[in-house]
Simulated assay, not measured.
Amino acid sequence: MQIFTLLPWADWLAVLWFFSGWIGYAWFARHYGVTRSSLLSTTNRYRHYWLLQATSRDPRVIDGVITQNLSSTPAFFSSTTIIIIGGLIALLGTTDKAAELVREIPFAVRTSVLIFDLKVLLMVGVFVYAFFRFSWSMRQYTFVALLIGSLPSPQEFEAGKFDREVFATRASRMVGLAAETFNDGLRAYYLSFALMAWFFSTIAFVLATAVVVLILYNREFNSDVLGVLRE
């Protein structure tokens, strides 16, 4: 309860702004991407092309290699996130020195050690969320490998025993879900930089949150990569 009295109302509003921007943008990107081409929806189309071609390949070694390469990125971020969480927890044991170091920065707002601990704990929470999303993305890619391994032979598809489109749609949707889950974790990484600005000032925290959300929007809906993929 002491935290509620020590933390100014402006900081609580900044925290509310941070989570509103995070959750609000995630909702916006998911629903706005249905009506307008986004990076995720556009790449989902290529995922469907890939799995549709996989139905006519035998053996499907290349598809297994692609799946393994795709799963290596969330695996790397998962292990990296654990290291970051460990470093932040270790920082909690030396918050006196860390808070003193921040106070020496000319434009940084001076806060108590208790408030500094709160900011570090919020950072820990952000990276814990990122770890769960990255690890779940890894798990989903194992399901993708399972779906690819269960694809019938090209001869069975040609004979009409199975529908290529059905199998390709199911597998591509699973790859898309894994990619979307990975995006959630990566979005947490982006927003952690906005949270870092809170160690300096509340205004910097608010502005950094808005800038990060704008960057996420531009990369998802207005990037050069999206323009190339839509051509």
Rank of each mutant, 00 (worst) to 15 (best):
A14D: 11
H48G: 05
G160K: 03
R230S: 13
S72Y: 01
V228F: 12
R173W: 06
G64S: 11
A10P: 00
P106A: 13
L114E: 15
W50G: 12
L101R: 00
S150Y: 12
G185W: 00
L40F: 07
P106T: 10
F76S: 08
W136F: 04
Y217N: 04
N218C: 07
F162P: 00
L118F: 06
R110Q: 14
L118W: 04
W17P: 06
L216P: 06
I66K: 08
F4G: 03
R36T: 02
Q140F: 01
R170S: 13
L91S: 15
D224A: 08
R139D: 03
V120P: 09
R47L: 13
L151P: 05
T42W: 09
V144P: 07
I62A: 15
Q2T: 04
V65R: 07
G176V: 02
L6H: 11
A194Q: 06
E165K: 08
R60E: 07
V34D: 06
R219M: 06
S37G: 05
I84D: 11
A130W: 04
Q68M: 15
Y49A: 12
W27N: 06
F182N: 11
W9S: 06
R103H: 15
F157D: 01
M123Q: 13
R230C: 12
G149V: 10
F157Y: 02
L51Q: 13
A145E: 13
I66G: 09
L118Y: 08
L191K: 04
A179N: 10
T42P: 05
Y141S: 01
F4K: 08
V175T: 10
P154L: 06
E231A: 09
I85L: 13
P152E: 08
F76P: 04
V34W: 01
S150L: 13
S79W: 01
R36D: 06
L121G: 09
R30I: 05
F167Q: 12
V102L: 09
R133H: 00
L114Q: 15
F77N: 06
F193R: 00
D11L: 04
T80I: 03
